[in-house]
Design a binder for these strands. Structure first.
Lengths: 75, 75, 75, 75
DNA sequence: GTGGTCTAGACCACT
DNA sequence: GTGGTCTAGACCACC
């Protein structure tokens, strides 16, 4: 198999979470699992999850409340 | 109406909670409402709740875990 | 662009209260709002307020009387 | 009966670790277990361990290297 | 994978 | 009704 360019793990995680949000499986206002939990679920390192969530934050799909968790954006 | 002796509010609260525990309305292992919440529910001061719970602790009906809450004893 | 170092929430709260004290908006001997009230005002957790007040105590700007409240120091 | 003052959990943890250091069970330069591990060992919350270690740092018994761990001081 | 900071809410000692 | 201490668990910066 081949691919046209860089194919980072965090991008795959971000795409997967984005699909869950856009499909409504993760509804607005819902809290995502913790970064540690997501790391276990996806079988990747915690920093990888952080990078994926950063992308979703930049895209306005999730918001993070310090010390509380990361939530699906309400807009 | 009359009564035969001292009739403290905390005793009434303790008796009420004891009834809930013995009837099973408050099952073993269940966490009681916080002292603040109980104070609102019974319409009494917080210290009164504390005195009532102290009695239940002495009687072994509840146990308190510091910083967590007060729970119905599992005996 | 750069900055002078970490910029913690409790430091911002401490700086804000310090400014109110030094400007005289909070006069010597005056009682500060309770930690719970300050937590609501600043929109932070009570522990964060406690951390900020601890700094002001170390700096001698406020004194705390157990069970009474926190007061602006008189010197 | 009397006692010499408040007897907080973090003080007990600090005293226990101090004893291990002074007895040589924890030798200079050795890395202590992580705060999470100590929390499990002592059966307390991580914040309580942090409070105990803060005291030991103030007393110069341990030093902490950010992101590496906490070590028994060499002097 | 560590320590640092923060949230939220509990009980407790004291006034 | 105050501040003090503690629990549990979150995200973050750094190594």
């Amino acid at each position: 198999m081949d691919h046209d360019g860089p194919d980072f793990v965090w991008e795959q995680v971000a795409a997967d979470l984005r699909a869950d949000i856009e499909s409504g499986a993760l509804a607005p206002g819902v809290r995502l699992p913790s970064e540690s939990a997501l790391a276990s679920i996806y079988g990747v390192a915690r920093g990888t999850i952080g990078r994926a969530l950063l992308k979703l934050k930049e895209d306005g799909l999730v918001v993070t409340r310090f010390g509380r968790g990361t939530f699906v954006a309400r807009t």
